[in-house]
């Protein structure tokens, strides 16, 4: 359960470069909800996700996870509950380390790290089962250095790292945007599979209208730092790309192009 109350964020306050990114966001995401977040460039989608993850202090409001106020905690302490996949495939996993080493680091997210061998038979078995679900053959390449992987493989690994230890909240910020359409499709399918199976509470940002229509049980549209539209359940299921664009006058070129 993720709750955001009156969240406000201003970048560079009091300077000429001042930018209001979030204007009082109120949002409750129920356990197991898969909410897709859309909106034009600069609407505040990434800022919302980053605020939940704890990348920076917010001016107003609070973030609660399972009723716990985490507003004052830095990102690495929130990682106990929050897992994320970035847009940039270079950020999610460490290139100089192997697939299994990356997964070993992720497997202890939020736990006390010990003076105990990071790699072992158990971990390897867990990694194989997890990676096999992505259908990219990564389970056979546990010792491969991550910088030898393609962008799509890296995103699949980042997703595996996010879910290897069950997160209370999963944040996906355009995690397929840097991939070619086919690989993006594969990673999206894997996302839906792992999120659905585990019933993870998820916020996913996308510019892909079809993905926004097809996936998730809730749709949030942001505009100028506010949530302009919030549909879920049957209403969300009934949405069409055309209907969405028509109803809400999405004038953003990027959205139209991708739709």
């Amino acid at each position: 359960m993720l709750e955001v109350r009156g969240l406000g964020k201003v970048f560079h306050p009091g300077t000429a470069a001042e930018r209001v990114a979030l204007r009082g966001i109120d949002l409750a995401v129920a356990p197991g909800d898969f909410a897709v977040v859309i909106g034009d460039n600069g609407a505040g989608k990434s800022t919302l996700l980053n605020a939940v993850a704890g990348d920076f202090a917010v001016e107003t409001g609070a973030v609660l996870i399972d009723g716990r106020d985490v507003t004052g905690l830095p990102a690495h302490r929130r990682a106990r509950w929050v897992a994320r996949v970035f847009q940039d495939p270079a950020l999610g996993a460490a290139g100089a380390m192997s697939i299994e080493e990356n997964l070993a680091v992720a497997a202890r997210r939020g736990c006390r790290r010990r003076f105990r061998a990071a790699l072992g038979r158990e971990g390897r078995a867990r990694d194989r089962t997890l990676l096999a679900r992505f259908g990219l053959g990564l389970e056979e390449r546990l010792r491969t250095r991550v910088d030898l992987l393609s962008g799509g493989q890296r995103q699949a690994l980042a997703l595996a790292m996010a879910v290897v230890r069950r997160p209370d909240v999963l944040l996906l910020d355009e995690h397929t945007a840097a991939l070619d359409p086919r690989t993006a499709g594969l990673v999206m399918d894997a996302t839906v599979a792992v999120v659905g199976d585990a019933g993870l509470t998820t916020l996913m940002v996308t510019h892909n209208m079809q993905h926004a229509i097809r996936f998730g049980n809730r749709l949030l549209m942001m505009r100028q730092g506010r949530i302009a539209l919030d549909v879920s359940g049957p209403a969300k299921a009934a949405l069409t790309v055309e209907g969405l664009i028509e109803r809400f006058h999405l004038a953003d070129d990027k959205l139209l192009l991708q739709a």
Partner: peptide, 24 residues
């Protein structure tokens, strides 16, 4: 090669990854 040492290497290999995985 311990959990602690691997996390330390992660800090050097990718700050973003280390932070996202809860490494201080």
């Amino acid at each position: 090669r311990t959990e602690i040492g691997t996390a330390m290497r992660a800090v050097g290999a990718s700050l973003a990854m280390a932070r996202a995985q809860g490494v201080d």
